[in-house]
Design a protein around this nucleic acid. Structure first.
Lengths: 332, 332
DNA sequence: TTGAAAGCGCTAACAA
DNA sequence: TTGTTAGCGCTTTCAA
């Protein structure tokens, strides 16, 4: 079924399309009876102008950056979005967000939709496709639309990337646990779709090759359930979690097992989301400059839109720093 | 400075626009030398096709719903977005999100941008403008674009609304505190830009006219600072907070003052965000069906796009239910 | 006050 | 293999 157009309205109302257009744009040259008739037909046919056609093709449009995120409700990504929006606005761009909710097909669709919406550049936080697919970026390349990756794919397309040094961050935290006398370290590992999970695990193992690697995920629930399972089979004196949400879930689980943090078990998170410092046992964690990640991604995106052609992709790697709070202790 | 068009590329490359178009669309009828030349010029001029023109105006586009939210990083709104996206996808629509970050001008801009991007309907979680402005919706009305409000403006435009019964929820929680023997109830009030803040306050006062109303806000930090200030001047035995984040911030503040929850002070939140049940003292709160709010809003939006004309606006009011956990106690 | 027609950037059909 | 042209939905002159 064709979309109703201005022609349909015009013929139905028995006027020319020019007249309908005049009504649409509220010009006062229109006879009031004609106007009423046109408005009635618009209502009757439920007519909506195609916006792209109104702005006379090629008229400068609002400048926009698209952002495709994995999980919009994750406070980690939310802060990155906020940072990206800040920077985008500062440079005269609007930020439009779509979430793949960790479903690969949705990520592909989101890119397509944003291209269709004529964004000027894209920031993407890509999923690690099980089959290593990266052809969703072909459309961007074909349309000459710059894109910046956050948490980039190692074997992905040649594109600018903003990321943090996960391996080093995880290694630093692990080193700290060892130095403060912890004997048995467990790592609650992140989800399979995340490049960060791989890197953080590697960081832990680089310092503590004996560490227990236990699968968890990225959420409160997953942290909670994982720790209950883990404690059935092992008695670690420190748990380094994939992220703060997992750590908070784990602390809850430890509480139910009547284990005290940090007296019985030290817990370390990753990300330093805002709530981590507001817990009754404030969380030791590896701080990730989330807003800065967003800001830099947006800055690079704008630079690639406006800058000279052919600049090589940038690769920004931000530091993640250990933030000591009350959930860890010295066991020496 | 005009945007580079296909004509520019064609003349610069010394070919017709048809040939450039063929190259753009990867048709193999193009001589490889010609193709190379065209691609060089595309690169040189940094040409990007206007997407709206490509899809031959009027060609069915991806169906999309816009969502303008107040604060994208607030877990409360994030869950509403997730619910809206679920429902939108189920019905064949994509969800595009923009955040006003509580700045009224950004809300106005976001609406304009989404209209320009030709969304089919809009879901909005509007700010309470200090001056009561609502003309940002005129553009939607003029374009015959349905819109659904979440947390609607009482004196706003005639539009469908999905909301919860805040007053009743707050009243129920207050009643519970009174019935369980609390003598002195304080309410940490929400921000001025929020209609919910007004309603929740009214709910508290309807049951406890003597309640101390203390301004806080909507964030962890605000709850934390507010409770420190409040406790300087009053000694409530129960604090009912605008939302869970404020409650969590307040509990942190109480902890620093060496007050125990719930032994010394009961604390009640509002919203029941996920983390509230994972705290070391799980939070008693008023549960808000956030995903359901989003789902219903999306369902109504789609209905207004596709349904028969002239259906009157719907007004959905969902119940908020008290969830008892460990942060409150019986003082009798 | 209205209608007719050019033109926005692009694709696709057809002609050369 | 390439060029020419109609047409997508709309706005905006310009004429009537």
């Amino acid at each position: 079924m064709r979309r109703t157009t201005i022609k349909d309205v015009a013929s139905q109302a028995g006027v020319s399309i020019g007249t309908v257009s005049a009504v649409l744009n509220g010009r006062d040259s229109v006879n009031s009876l004609t106007k009423v008739r046109v408005l009635e037909v618009i209502e009757e046919l439920n007519y909506r102008p195609v916006e792209a056609a109104r702005r006379r093709l090629g008229t400068p449009r609002e400048k926009t950056l698209g952002f495709v995120v994995k999980e919009i409700h994750n406070p980690y990504f939310a802060d990155i979005i906020v940072g990206a929006q800040e920077e985008a606005l500062r440079r005269g761009y609007r930020l439009i967000v779509m979430s793949s909710e960790k479903i690969f097909e949705h990520e592909v669709d989101a890119i397509r939709v944003l291209v269709e919406k004529d964004i000027d550049a894209l920031i993407i936080n890509p999923l690690l496709a099980a089959d290593g697919r990266t052809d969703q970026f072909d459309r961007l390349i074909a349309n000459n639309i710059p894109f910046v990756m956050i948490e980039g794919l190692t074997d992905g397309p040649r594109a600018s990337t903003v990321d943090i040094d996960n391996e080093r961050g995880a290694a630093t935290a692990t080193r700290y646990l060892l130095d403060s006398g912890h004997q048995k370290i467990a790592h609650l590992e992140g989800p399979a779709y995340s490049q960060h999970a791989v890197e953080r695990r590697a960081g832990v193992l680089s310092e503590a090759p004996e560490a227990i690697i236990f699968p968890a995920g990225a959420t409160l629930k997953e942290g909670y359930h994982a720790v209950l399972e883990l404690l059935k089979i092992e008695q670690p004196d420190a748990i380094l979690c994939y992220n703060d949400l997992v750590a908070i879930g784990a602390m809850r689980g430890l509480g139910e097992l009547e284990l005290r943090v940090p007296e019985d078990v030290s817990v370390v998170g990753f990300d330093d989301i805002e709530i981590s410092s507001f817990l009754s046992v404030p969380l030791t964690t590896v701080g990730v400059p989330r807003r800065e990640i967003g800001r830099q991604a947006a800055a690079i995106a704008v630079h690639e839109i406006e800058g000279p052609r052919g600049t090589p992709p940038e690769r920004v790697l931000l530091e993640a720093e250990l933030v000591l709070r009350a959930s860890t202790t010295n066991r020496r």
